[in-house]
Design a protein around this nucleic acid. Structure first.
Lengths: 206, 206
DNA sequence: TAAAAGTACGAACGGTCGTACGATTTCTTT
DNA sequence: AAAGAAATCGTACGACCGTTCGTACTTTTA
C-alpha cells in the first residue's frame, strides 16, 4: 500500500498473475502452471513474474490462497449478509455453491475441486493448504448445520458430520460430472438430492 | 502372443510398465507420468520404453485403458460371479467398490477418480477415454438398478439416474476425502449413506 | 540353423522447465 | 528534483522433457 491508500504497482501485478493462475489451475491443475507460460500469457518476463513469488511452490501456494478467497467471495460472502442463520443459511449456502458452479466462474469449474483431487495424494505444503481450505469450508457448513439443529429446524438426533458428508457429496459430484460431461443436468440432480436430504433431516414432530 | 500361446517378451514389459504407470497416475496424475522417470524406475532405457507406445499420449491412453481393466478386475468381476442380479448385486457392487477403495490398491486411491478430475476440463482423446470408462461404470450401475426395479426390489417410481447420481456421489466423495485427509471414516460414512439411500428406495408396499 | 521379427539400447536433437543474478526502468517518498 | 525503494527485464544455467535414429541383441519362425 502507498501512503495515500492506493495499491502498489507490484501488488496489482500480483493480482493479475493470480487471476490468470486460477484460470489455468482450474482447467489444468496447479501442476499445469508454469512460470514461462504465465509470463507469456501476460506479456511479462519470466524473471519479472518469478520475482513476485520467489519459487514455483510459493506461486502454487499463493494460487491456493487465491482460490480460497475467490470461493469465499463468490459463495460464502453473499450468503452471510443475506440469509438468517440456521436452516435458511444452510440452504442458501448450498444454493449459492451450486450457482457458483453453474456460473462457471473458472473455465475448469470449481478450482477448489480441481486442486484437491490433484493434490490429495501428494503430501507437502500444498496439500496441507488445500486440505485446510477444503476443511474450512466443510467446517463452516458443519457449524451452520449445528446452528440449525440448535434452533430446532433440523432433528435433534441429526448426525452432523454424516449430513455434511452427504450434502457435500452431491455438490462435489456435480462439479466433477458437470465438467467431465459438460452437462448442467448434474446440478439439478444435486439440488434435488440436497433438498430431499434436508427434508429427511427435519424434526420428526414438526 | 506367440504361436504356442505364451506372451511375447515385449507384452510382458508393457504390462510391467503399465502397472507402474498406474501407481504413478493414481498419486500424481497422468501428467505426472514422464517417460524418463518411468524408465528410470524400471531400469529401462527411455527409448526402449518409448518404443512400446510411440508417443506420450499413447502411453497415457494405454494407462487409462489399464485403469479401466484394473477397475473391472478389482470391483466388477468378483461381484458378477457371486451375486444374484438385482438389488443384491447392486449392494454387492457398491460394497465391492468401497472395499477396493479401502484396500488402497493404488497408492493414490482410485486411479479412475484421480484421472477423471485431472482431465475433466481438457478436451481431447484422453478426456474422451476417461469419460468413456467413467460412463461405462455408471452405466453398469444404472442397468443394475433397473434390474432391481424390474424385479420389484426397488420402488417402481424410482428415478434411476437420480439414484445412481446419489449413490456414486457418496463413493467418489469417500475416494477424495479419504485420501486427502488420510482417514477411513469417510468410507463408513459412504456405506452408511448408501444403505440409507437404498432403504429409502425400497417399494412402498413392501 | 538361417532368416525374420521383435525388443532394447545409447547418443543426440530442440524445447521448456525452474532458478539465479546483475542491470535497468519505474514508482514513491523526502 | 534527488534519493531510495520497488518492480521489471535480459541473459544464462543445468536439468529434464518428448522424440528420433542407427545399432545391437534376443527371441520366434521357417
Amino acid at each position: 500500500m502507498t501512503t495515500d491508500g492506493r495499491l502498489l504497482r507490484g501488488e496489482q501485478t500480483r493480482r493479475t498473475i493470480l487471476d490468470r493462475a486460477l484460470d489455468i489451475a482450474s482447467a489444468e491443475g496447479l501442476e499445469g502452471l508454469s512460470i514461462g507460460r504465465l509470463a507469456g500469457d501476460l506479456s511479462l518476463s519470466k524473471s519479472g513474474l518469478f520475482a513476485h513469488f520467489g519459487s514455483k511452490e510459493e506461486l502454487q501456494l499463493a494460487t491456493v490462497q487465491a482460490a480460497r478467497e475467490a470461493f469465499v467471495d463468490q459463495v460464502v460472502r453473499p450468503v452471510a449478509a443475506a440469509a438468517e442463520p440456521g436452516l435458511a443459511r444452510l440452504e442458501a449456502l448450498l444454493a449459492s455453491w451450486l450457482d457458483y458452479v453453474r456460473r462457471r466462474v473458472f473455465p475448469g469449474g470449481c478450482v477448489l475441486y480441481s486442486i484437491s483431487a490433484e493434490y490429495d495424494a501428494r503430501p507437502g505444503r500444498i496439500r496441507d493448504a488445500v486440505a485446510a481450505s477444503h476443511g474450512a469450508w466443510h467446517g463452516h457448513l458443519r457449524d451452520t448445520v449445528r446452528e440449525a439443529v440448535a434452533r430446532g429446524e433440523l432433528d435433534a438426533a441429526t448426525d452432523v458430520d454424516q449430513l455434511v458428508f452427504e450434502l457435500t457429496s452431491y455438490v462435489w459430484q456435480a462439479c466433477g460430472n458437470g465438467v467431465l460431461y459438460d452437462d448442467d443436468v448434474f446440478l439439478d440432480r444435486a439440488r434435488e438430492a440436497v433438498s430431499a436430504r434436508l427434508r429427511r433431516a427435519r424434526p420428526r414432530s414438526a
